[in-house]
């Protein structure tokens, strides 16, 4: 019984080592665009660039890389649905030859204020593991969506204007 368990454990270890080795062939770098605003706020567009590189000796087939965005504010930690932030969610390559790179750009439109972290993950068709880029953190400053300086004059002024017209009308009558 003990011998059987040991064999299973050895087999699992070998599979895991193989998977890590396969994932290790592909590396990913991620960096923000130097033109990104230094202190971005809601509504700004920023860009990240990733470079997926096959550092192994064999061709890696069916490469898929994708961007993940998470909010890391204390008490509000959550994955963010990219639907509203970016139309560019994944990059694919049929094959990545040894030494070949796949460059991808990830534009983001900043929708909500907060602290965020992006990471690019890569898997291949036959690989058993996942390669991830270094994290890139950024903060989005709040921007008033509905500006009181615009709403208040209209919301107060227009009814007052009509009231004035009403009073003038009554006086004229």
């Amino acid at each position: 019984m003990i011998l059987h368990v040991s064999r299973v454990a050895l087999a699992l270890t070998l599979i895991l080592v193989a998977a890590v080795a396969r994932a290790g062939d592909v590396s990913v770098d991620l960096a923000p665009d130097p033109k990104n605003p230094p202190a971005p706020q809601m509504g700004d567009n920023i860009l990240f660039r990733s470079v997926i590189r096959n550092g192994g000796p064999t061709t890696v087939d069916g490469v898929i890389g994708w961007l993940s965005l998470v909010q890391i504010d204390p008490g509000a930690e959550q994955p963010v649905d990219l639907e509203d932030w970016s139309a560019h969610k994944a990059v694919t390559a049929t094959a990545l030859k040894p030494g070949e790179t796949l460059v991808a750009e990830w534009p983001l439109r900043l929708i909500q204020s907060g602290n965020y972290r992006v990471v690019v993950s890569v898997v291949s068709r036959d690989g058993g593991g996942i390669a991830t880029s270094p994290f890139a953190d950024f903060e989005v400053r709040e921007k008033p969506v509905v500006e009181s300086t615009r709403v208040l004059p209209v919301a107060v002024g227009l009814p007052l204007l009509i009231v004035a017209a009403l009073l003038w009308r009554r006086k004229a009558a």
């Binding site: 809601m42 929708i111 909500q112 509905v146 009403l166």
Partner: peptide, 29 residues
């Protein structure tokens, strides 16, 4: 004019409700 005033008050009320909301995202705009 009273009719138009009623319409303006409804729109003003909606606008003023939005001003106080600090949780709006750009999508909410």
């Amino acid at each position: 004019l009273a009719c138009l005033l009623a319409m303006a008050v409804v729109l003003s009320g909606f606008g003023l409700l939005l001003v106080g909301d600090t949780e709006l995202s750009l999508l909410d705009n």
